[in-house]
Simulated scan of single mutants.
Amino acid sequence: MKKAIKYIVLVIVVIFVIMVIKDISKNPIQKKEQTSDEISLILDANAYSRISSEQLLNLLGEPKTREDWTNENSKGTFQMKIFSYDLEGMYAEFILFDDSVVKIRCFATEPWEIEKDFDNVFKMFNITVKDSARKVVDNGITYKFSPVSDTVAEFDVYNFDSEKHTFDSVYITYNLNYFDNP
């Protein structure tokens, strides 16, 4: 009898947590809002970390396109799905494996400007960087960081213009198991 009561309480707690998380992530795209440091939020990367296709559809609706893609790398062959969306200020591809978002590729319609310091690029995607994060690529145009946070395994910034302090593409990887790292 005690096990049944514990099970019922556990189920209620899990349902409550799911409802709270769902409520928090209802509006993950907040281009016009400002973070606490007055940095424009482009996309809440945490809202998409390893969510299912059903959760993605609940957040963003039907994608512009759906594509099956076979990704082959040194770790094997993986049958992926790509859901593409035209979002405010960007085109985004959500890559799913085994019904879980494992990567997002974001392409700006107009270059994004980094306000103040380069580190603010993380705030623009609502990423809180761990102390253990390190820059693994830095060629002046492309920057790659890994591991990044509790939800983001790798974060790539492409086409950085040091004079204008702008960039136009970001890859957010949640699970590195399906992708090779240079």
Rank of each mutant, 00 (worst) to 15 (best):
K2V: 09
I8E: 13
I8R: 09
V9Y: 05
L10K: 05
V11S: 11
I12N: 08
I15K: 03
I18E: 15
M19E: 15
S25K: 14
K26L: 13
N27M: 11
I29F: 07
K32F: 12
K32N: 14
K32L: 07
E33Y: 11
E33M: 15
Q34G: 14
T35A: 13
D37S: 13
L41P: 00
I42M: 01
I42H: 00
I42C: 00
A45W: 02
A45T: 13
A45E: 04
N46Q: 10
A47R: 04
Y48M: 08
R50K: 07
R50L: 12
E54S: 15
E54Y: 11
Q55E: 15
L56I: 01
L57I: 15
L57A: 12
N58V: 12
G61V: 13
E62I: 14
P63Y: 01
K64Y: 10
R66E: 14
R66M: 08
W69T: 01
T70K: 09
T70S: 07
E72W: 01
N73C: 10
T77H: 03
T77V: 13
F83C: 05
Y85E: 05
G89Q: 03
M90S: 11
E93W: 00
E93V: 01
L96M: 07
D98K: 04
D98N: 09
K103F: 02
I104N: 02
C106R: 02
C106H: 02
F107C: 07
F107W: 03
F107M: 09
A108H: 02
P111Q: 11
I114W: 01
K116V: 12
D117F: 05
D117Y: 05
F118P: 06
D119K: 03
F122Y: 04
K123V: 07
M124Y: 03
F125W: 05
F125S: 06
N126E: 09
V129M: 07
D131P: 06
D131A: 14
A133N: 10
R134Q: 15
R134K: 14
K135D: 08
T142D: 13
T142L: 14
S146W: 06
S149H: 10
S149L: 09
D150A: 14
V152S: 06
A153R: 11
E154N: 11
F155H: 02
V157W: 00
N159H: 13
F160P: 01
D161T: 09
E163C: 10
K164R: 14
T166R: 00
T166D: 06
F167K: 02
V170D: 03
V170G: 00
Y171L: 06
Y171N: 06
Y174L: 02
N177T: 08
N177W: 08
D180Y: 05
N181D: 09
N181T: 14
N181C: 08
P182G: 11
